[in-house]
């Protein structure tokens, strides 16, 4: 318990480096989530009516998903060097699978009766996509974002290995000087961030989709 107290005291006494690391962590995670959304959602829409493209994309992304975060980070280095940018790219790769796969499956498995009714009443293909499929798949897309957010916040812990900074710096430093309270500064904050993200996104999801699910 005293270790936790030590960690909190350290944060209190060193606001500047703590805030800088926190902001780096959030910027890195936020940016990669945004990029993953910007790539993943349109891609899901694009491949929904193209069977081969869908199979290829899903397989590629599934293969990426099996790679450990550290490996992705390491692979980035020879191509992009070190710093924030390669970290963001690596984290984007981490965020892409849950976002793309959830969105794709959500769009694909939309209630076929709704699609049949929409077709039968004279909606065009694009109207069915935008007015029926996308809104019906929105909860699945949101679930993908939730998973990705937690993964990215946790994954960003490894960014120090390629000079990306963030809260992982404290863990690396703590390990280096065998200072457990310093290690906890990073670890605890990351854990709190991940839990908070999960909580806020779950709440948002509920607010957004409660009515239609009849809750």
């Amino acid at each position: 318990m005293s270790l936790v107290l030590d960690a909190l005291t350290w944060i209190w006494n060193n606001p500047a480096p703590f805030n800088r690391a926190l902001i780096q962590h959030l910027v890195m995670s936020g940016a990669s989530l945004l990029i993953a959304l910007a790539v993943g959602l349109p891609l899901a829409v694009l491949i929904i009516s193209r069977q081969t493209l869908a199979t290829v994309s899903i397989n590629v992304v599934n293969a990426l998903r099996t790679l450990p975060s550290l490996v992705i980070l390491a692979i980035m280095m020879p191509f992009m060097g070190i710093g924030l940018a390669p970290s963001i790219v690596a984290l984007t790769i981490l965020a892409l699978p849950p976002i793309l796969i959830n969105a794709y499956v959500g769009l694909r498995d939309v209630d076929p009766d709704a699609v049949e009714a929409a077709t039968g009443m004279g909606m065009s293909r694009s109207q069915i996509l935008w007015k029926i499929r996308v809104p019906l798949a929105a909860p699945a897309m949101f679930a993908g974002l939730r998973t990705a957010a937690v993964q990215v916040l946790a994954g960003a812990t490894l960014a120090p290995f390629i000079g990306g900074g963030g809260l992982g710096d404290f863990i690396v430093a703590g390990l280096g000087i065998m200072d457990m309270s310093r290690l906890l500064v990073g670890a605890l904050t990351i854990a709190v961030l991940a839990l908070l993200a999960e909580f806020i996104l779950a709440l948002t999801e509920k607010l957004l989709f409660a009515e239609r699910t009849g809750a």
Binding site: A114, A117, G122, P135
Partner: peptide
């Protein structure tokens, strides 16, 4: 266009849940 002039009730109703 043609289907807009034809009312259609499907067997499983198929309301839009959103």
């Amino acid at each position: 266009q043609f289907r807009r002039r034809i009312g259609y009730v499907i067997q499983q109703v198929g309301l839009f849940s959103h």
